[in-house]
Simulated scan of single mutants.
Amino acid sequence: MKKLLLGLAIALSSMSFAQEKAKEASLPVRFGVKAGLNVSSINSDDAKAKAGLYGGFFANIPVASSFSVQPELLYNGMGAKNEDYSDVKLNLDYISVPVMVQYNILPEFYVEAGPQFSFAINRKIKGPGGTADVKDFYKGFDFGLGLGAGYYIAQGFGVTARFVAGVTDIIENNNDDAIRNSVFQIGVAYKF
């Protein structure tokens, strides 16, 4: 819970600090919503990709004519499927706080990179025998690095793509090789 509050505090302070910077630069802060498809997995020999959803809110805060900071607050459905038994799924649901630095190559097209702080809200394995809670085996916090791009078509509507590679081990008390999340996201965004 402390990490969730810390992540939210970082996102809110980034938004308020950047709003002041944007006022100084007379560039407007834009708020928006985004949603789309996650294709996620973990780096385990018996894991394969699983589809999920993401969605949430963002603030796009210009800090220069071509640069902006975009803190986000997202629901992120991640996890993996078992390679041998595709009906066995690891469902890891997070509240994620990415803080992306964006560079506008063109006014409509940007590239981005930055950290993502994720706080687990659900950790379960689902299979033919039912659903089991595995929160004692998977950590409640995940840290990743994201790299992406987006294109705004018209009137604030755009398409986005991002890859987030997990940096931290998601297994509690793991003495073997680190198990990390990875997720590819593709979706739509709308700036108000």
Rank of each mutant, 00 (worst) to 15 (best):
N60Y: 00
T160S: 04
G129E: 07
V88H: 07
V88L: 12
E172Q: 14
N60C: 02
N122R: 14
I153F: 15
I95K: 09
D84S: 14
M78D: 14
A149I: 02
A11Y: 02
N175G: 14
A161V: 09
S65K: 11
F192D: 09
Y190W: 10
S16Q: 08
A22L: 02
Y151I: 08
S14Q: 00
D177H: 00
S44D: 14
I105W: 11
D46Y: 01
G7T: 07
K2A: 15
V101N: 06
G52Y: 13
K48F: 06
G56Q: 14
A49W: 12
L74T: 02
P28V: 01
D46A: 09
M78N: 14
I121T: 11
M100H: 09
L6W: 09
A165W: 02
K135W: 00
L8S: 11
V164D: 14
E20Q: 11
R30N: 12
L27D: 08
F163E: 04
V164L: 11
S13E: 04
G55I: 00
I125G: 01
L73K: 02
Y103C: 05
D136E: 11
A149E: 03
S26R: 12
A64C: 04
V188C: 10
E24T: 08
E83S: 15
Q70G: 08
A189W: 00
S13Q: 07
K34Y: 04
N181R: 09
K139M: 03
V164P: 10
V159S: 01
F17N: 03
N91I: 01
L6P: 03
A80R: 00
K191A: 08
P98R: 08
G114H: 05
Q70W: 05
V167K: 05
I179S: 08
A18Y: 05
L145T: 09
V33K: 01
G52P: 13
G146F: 04
D45N: 15
R180C: 08
S96D: 13
N174A: 11
S68Y: 00
Q19V: 00
S44Y: 05
I121D: 01
A25Q: 07
K124D: 11
I95W: 14
G36F: 05
V39K: 04
G127V: 04
E112C: 13
A11H: 02
A165T: 08
P115R: 07
A59D: 09
Q185N: 13
Y151V: 11
A59P: 04
V97C: 05
L37K: 10
V39A: 13
V164I: 15
G7E: 07
F157A: 10
P98W: 03
E108A: 12
S14Y: 00
F184P: 06
F163H: 13
E172F: 00
L4C: 01
P62T: 12
